[in-house]
Design a protein around this nucleic acid. Structure first.
Lengths: 123, 123
DNA sequence: ACCGCTGTATTAGGCAACTAATACAATAGC
DNA sequence: GCTATTGTATTAGTTGCCTAATACAGCGGT
């Protein structure tokens, strides 16, 4: 994983989000085993405790399972994962559109900008 | 203004963003006069110092002008305002699309979701 | 000239959150 | 049974933000 952490937001929150995305997108498939807390922490250049906090949060959300002295695994519950994916997509969309509305940009403007942006990437 | 402040991010930053949006969208037109620091602070239930910090930041960005003993005004520079609007729209779009990409949702999926969302609002 | 209003500066204190260091607990595997 | 490796708990320290109190400076209106 390429941890791209900035200091303008809580580290643990960024890690949570990062891993959530990897699970939601399927990059981390159901049942995938995680490295140990210490290993992950070292990899991300972060205190083990910080990593632990992130992982606990993910467990609280039901995305991770823990076998106490064995390690952690992505949940096998594919429905939960799909729910997560939908939820994240939906909130992204509505947040984005709300922002555009506040900027006074209507539906046509939004679609325009998006198509523009995709064309830029097709180079 | 309806200050809708949450505690999960610095207050002053939220205020900055709020006012930026009002300026970018034209809700606060060029040359519009601001209430005094103390008045705004009271209105937003915030310490004057916090409000001042936000306003200073906006001034640093060139969006506000100060007439020392008279008050503050939105800049008259319409080009600067338009630049702000473009900049905010652009960063919103690219951030949104990056998120969708990470979720594994392609162009068609994005357009689909957006149209869905707009239909929902047309009730 | 004075009073009231504007913005500005300074200092201090407290609170909450994040990070860190270290010690503890439990089990798998040899 | 011992050791290594896992997750967990506890305590401590640092930082950033917000608040507060107070003082200063300059202009307008009466």
């Amino acid at each position: 994983m390429s941890w791209n952490l900035s200091s303008d937001r809580p580290i643990f929150a960024q890690i949570v989000e990062h891993i959530e995305l990897d699970i939601a997108s399927g990059k981390l498939p159901p049942g995938a085993k995680f490295p140990s807390v210490r290993e992950l922490a070292s990899e991300a250049s972060v205190n083990p405790n910080t990593m632990q906090r992130a992982l606990s949060e993910l467990e609280r959300k039901g995305l991770l399972r823990t076998d106490r002295t064995v390690g952690r695994f992505v949940t096998y519950d594919k429905r939960e994962i799909e729910r997560l994916r939908k939820e994240k997509a939906s909130s992204s969309v509505s947040g984005f559109l709300m922002q555009m509305k506040k900027l006074g940009i209507d539906k046509d403007g939004v679609l325009e900008l998006i198509k523009e942006n995709y064309q830029k990437e097709e180079t």
